[in-house]
Amino acid sequence: MADSSMAASTAGANPRRPLAGAGTSHWGEKLIKVFLALCAAFSVLVTTGIVLSLVFPTISFFGQIPLAEFLLGTTWAPAFAQASFGVLPIVVGTLIVVVTALAVSVPIGLASAIYLSEYASSRVRKVVKPALEVLEGIPTVAIGLFAFFFMRPLAEQLFPFFPWDTPFSIGIAGVAVGLLIVPLVASVSEDAMRSVPAGLREGAYALGASKMRVSMRVIFPAAISGIIAAVVLGTSRAIGETMVVLIAAGAGNPNLTFNWFGSAQTMTAYIGGTATGDISQGTVVYDTIFAVGALLFSMTLVMNIIATRLVRRFREVYE
């Protein structure tokens, strides 16, 4: 049956161009498809590999330390003689950095995005946008040094009445991380605002809306999904940032502290500071870095899920 229909189609009006096709291009297509599928599968495999590499040492860790002690304990001193494995101090350190970084980067980033998208002339935009993107590429080591040698001493000179009890400050590290992610937040949300159809902008201007009103009431809500994506990317970057906090926030205090001005450790800084050459495999300390890594991974995952929900909830769909 299939044969006869094939024959009928090849015996069409133009015998030089059979509909059945010449085998080679068909195989070429298949090959390309397989190759592309493999590339796509590769990143999935790598992610799975990362998760698995975290899972086994983490399981080994929780074989020795109860989950409740890890999650609820308020002293983090895995390498001390009197070892203690309460992760809260470094979770709080991370949260201080993230909240501070967002408090700096979201207002500045969104304001820059609104300026670039709605106020700036195309000439200004052509200069500023690439400059922003270059800023995104500044090595974080440089920013860490800047925070430690410049921002922290300057802050103490300007505000001597705060409890600057060490040369390190988790808060200043957070501000530096915030500066680091301003370009990211600005650039991604500017793209979202620019992609709002020009018709919406014109419609609002034609009703006598001022620039500020068009930006805040029309462009901003229409671009909200992209803006949330920008903030989520910034948050992930702040959670994961290691070098700046390693340099500027110090080795911290084993006990839970909320002192914004003093030294504290973050989860990443703990991992970065501990995973050096002289750590021996199979010890509890070795396993802690994976347990902390797994916790970090879960926190980012939960945040991404919440963000996806938020985007769906607030999205204004045009067309």
């Binding site: 018709g199 919406l200 014109e202 419609g203 609002a204 204004e316 045009y318």
Partner: peptide, 12 residues
């Protein structure tokens, strides 16, 4: 006021 070629209601 103005009405445009392509209907451009706000996504509200």
């Amino acid at each position: 006021g103005m009405v445009f070629q392509k209907p451009n209601p706000f996504p509200k």
